[in-house]
Design a protein around this nucleic acid. Structure first.
Lengths: 233, 233
DNA sequence: ACCTGAACACCGTTCAAGT
DNA sequence: ACCTGAACACCGTTCAAGT
């Protein structure tokens, strides 16, 4: 079976099409889903595409440039809530809606929190969010409120990602440290937490459920916090 | 000038005392102050101590073990507020008090948020904090409230650290991205943020002042959020 | 007990060059 | 325009060995 002759070197000789920028980001996205944004190397990415590391530089740039493009793609996948919702429902929808997308791509939440609205798709989101807060009467407080709401949710997701990474040993160490003080009368606070940890169990499914509840709790408290800002005025 | 003869190799031959675990952590702490917890290598640490990388392994363990010890030392330096304060003042004092210590050691806040009370000194802190919340009537909600308060503050500090790292190029890019939309009528929200950014200025001192104010704002809102939890009951 | 020296299997990034 | 191959200056970690 004759392969089409092209003027390109070995990749083409093997019948493979030239690597495109899109294909590189697709592959980087796949690696991010599998290992997390900070847990793949540019060389691994190149290997997955069957090219040398140099090719990635040629089409996208250095590792940071690839990472920014991945973040951009993930943010674009975050569902924007409908405009009819009130500010509190709108943010509740946004922050609960972004969680599955971001948790599926570990490390993206952190980068997004750091980059902020430097990512174009995040700019669009910010515009809608700020407008919602302005409509609700936040006035000059809208900017700080928006930043606070997004930061809180993103950083909570970032720490979930990080804790997930070091699950094997560290989770047990933490439980052990707590349980060691469980009946210490000098530390009633720790004893309470230890009892809570023991009740929750160590089953992975249970841990996921605990994280889910805490995230819900955290965004509810965060919304209460900014609500207090407007009620006070 | 005759050096004291010892039975140890080259270090001793040069008149240097044997490296101790304490000296290793001292050096790691110094590197953390200068470059941040994630921006020094185990080999740099060894070089600073004039030994081979193997020596660090011998006395402390792998890089993660060194990092945990550094975190431990930094947490121990966080001032614990006096017991007489009410819960809100106590947490305000804790969260404002830990900021200078943690910002002086970039990267520690993030590790602490991830490790949680696995660090012994953090356990002591947690015990006092939970007791304060129990006294204030939070009951079974005390654990979640404590976790939420600490997480929020630590993660805010962590993102300040991270943003500080990529100051040169990224800060300007962000400002540029915002200002590009400053008079876009389709994006009134972004225009408002752009005006705010321009007003703040780009002077490093001004940026620090903005971060200070936002941190204060964030912990006030976080405290309002958990206060709403107890008022509701 | 404390340290050395060399090695293993990696990194991100850059070079000069090939079709 | 697209890709190669080799190199540079690093990593964390582990080895067998020395006094």
């Amino acid at each position: 079976m004759p392969l089409p002759r092209t003027r390109f070197p070995s990749r083409a000789a093997a019948g493979l099409p030239p690597v495109t920028t899109g294909a590189i980001i697709d592959a980087a996205l796949q690696l991010t889903v599998e290992h997390g944004l900070e847990n793949w190397s540019l060389r691994e990415l190149a290997r997955l595409l069957d090219v040398g590391p140099r090719v990635v530089y040629h089409h996208v740039g250095d590792r940071d440039a690839v990472v920014r493009d991945v973040v951009q793609r993930v943010v674009a996948a975050v569902p924007i809530p409908p405009d009819e919702l009130g500010w509190r429902d709108w943010f509740t929808a946004l922050l609960t809606g972004c969680r599955p997308v971001l948790r599926r791509h570990p490390g993206v939440a952190r980068r997004l929190a750091i980059l902020g609205p430097a990512v174009p798709a995040a700019l669009e989101l910010m515009d809608r969010g700020i407008r919602k807060l302005l409509d609700a009467g936040f006035e000059q407080g809208a900017i700080a409120a928006y930043r606070f709401l997004l930061n809180s949710a993103l950083l909570q997701l970032a720490v979930e990602d990080d804790r997930h990474d070091l699950q094997p040993r560290a989770r047990e160490e933490l439980a052990a440290a707590l349980l060691a003080h469980r009946d210490s009368e000098r530390h009633p606070g720790i004893a309470l937490v230890a009892a809570d940890v023991r009740e929750q169990g160590t089953d992975p499914n249970d841990i996921v459920a605990v994280d889910d509840r805490f995230y819900e709790y955290a965004i509810a408290r965060t919304l209460d916090g900014v609500a207090a800002q407007i009620q006070g005025t």
